[in-house]
Design a protein around this nucleic acid. Structure first.
Lengths: 236, 236
DNA sequence: AGTCCCGTGTTCGATAATAGGACAACCGAA
DNA sequence: TTCGGTTGTCCTATTATCGAACACGGGACT
């Protein structure tokens, strides 16, 4: 009843616990046990036991009123995600963000059809677009996704790629960078270059903005420089 | 048998799933199912089911050899931890890190006796100390912890605080910043200032280095400026 | 004060999800 | 080829979990 799929799809209890975290992540305020139990569709005592377990592991915290929020233990776990890649990329992302005055992000391929933003860096002063890590979208749309495709051999492309996108990619391969406008987020532009490192999933570096005050080619050059810096820092 | 505490301490299944994540976070390579089952002390088929559930939620991924690593889904969850605080602080941390050439970090109080590093920023070029988010240590030792105590009313201090630390804090309160040397990490120095924002747990901003090339007072001034910037960006 | 109400924390028996043995299928190495 | 080591899948006894019911505590309102 939890998992409508015919085959066994996993552990009910663990899945519920994770969904509690997801609910908290998407909420914009702290939630009570009753809120969470209701959102999960389970009895309050069930939510209570799950939340206590999450609290033991510091994945959730309670505020003064007893309501729940995500806890700092998650930071410890996330720092282990593609650790070397993050360490190598973060300073470079910041430098690019400040150089260009645009939000700069690192996206990685997850599974085979989705790309998710791993870390993002906002420039110091200007009113940049804020782009939260964890944002996910299909690989076939948006600059970061198409840049990842650029970095992969054509044979590894997903089968369900539309002919339209294939044609665009073959064209842009000459350019060496991908771009997008109005694809993932309305009225948002992006320029992205691939970042392929051995031992890491295919990735890309991108900047996003509502309007560019220099040519895309210039921006792409800066990104390629950054990608080389990351590769050097990564060592492989 | 899982939880040796007398009272019921939570959900066994959920706790095991989280421990899988913790094991993966502390490992320096990708792990097989057998490795993980062994580290957890459970049967392989149990680990298999838990891992499949984690994979469904993108908290773990499998590499080409079928071995497991932490997944990008964690990034989405962590971006929800103290979201406003992170957004307001990150650009400032980077600026400070590059200004001073030292790793700069944001630490928050977790529970009532521990402080954990939420985000850290390394300077662009120099060979800075790398300090992973998620690092936890007692509030009574280390610059960041003592700075958090500085920002709290004395009445809220933990009862088990040694007289020695109390005396040091009363002294340093005049200075307005905390420092440490050889406390948490051997041969490491830190300077830290408190950061108190309404609606957020007590926090602090700190820089760490093996040796400072300017006076601690100068560094503290820069940190205080940064704390004000964060408070402005945070809005509250 | 008192009383209601909404919330949390705890207990406990029935039940359903889980634990883990066993087997099949697979892949790479010798 | 055969072997050794792995992963993926069933199956049933067991046991962790579910959820109702209860006790407690703090506000808000009368």
């Amino acid at each position: 009843m939890e998992q409508p799929t015919g085959t066994q799809a996993g552990s009910q209890t663990l899945s519920r616990g994770i969904r509690l975290l997801e609910i908290l992540a998407s909420a914009d305020r702290n939630l009570s046990i009753a809120d969470l139990a209701n959102a999960l569709g389970v009895h309050r005592s069930v939510a209570y036991r799950l939340l206590r377990t999450l609290e033991h592991h510091d994945l959730v915290t309670r505020d003064h009123a007893g309501q729940f929020a995500l806890g700092a233990g998650l930071a410890a776990l996330t720092s282990g995600v593609a650790r070397n890649l993050q360490q190598a990329a973060l300073p470079v992302l910041n430098e690019i963000a400040n150089d260009l005055g645009m939000t700069c992000l690192l996206a990685v391929l997850q599974g085979s059809g989705d790309v998710v933003t791993l870390v993002s860096a906002a420039p110091r002063q200007s009113v940049a677009v804020s782009y939260r890590p964890g944002h996910r979208h299909p690989i076939s749309s948006g600059g970061p996704g198409k840049a990842i495709l650029l970095g992969m051999p054509e044979s590894a492309w997903p089968a369900d790629l539309s002919d339209e996108v294939r044609a665009e990619l073959v064209e842009t391969r000459v350019r060496g960078y991908a771009h997008s406008h109005d694809e993932v987020v309305p009225s948002l532009r992006s320029v992205a270059v691939p970042l392929i490192l051995s031992g890491q999933p295919p990735a890309s570096i991108a900047v996003i903005h509502v309007s560019f005050d220099r040519t895309e080619a210039e921006i792409a050059e800066r990104l390629k420089l950054g990608a080389q810096s990351v590769a050097r820092a990564y060592g492989a």
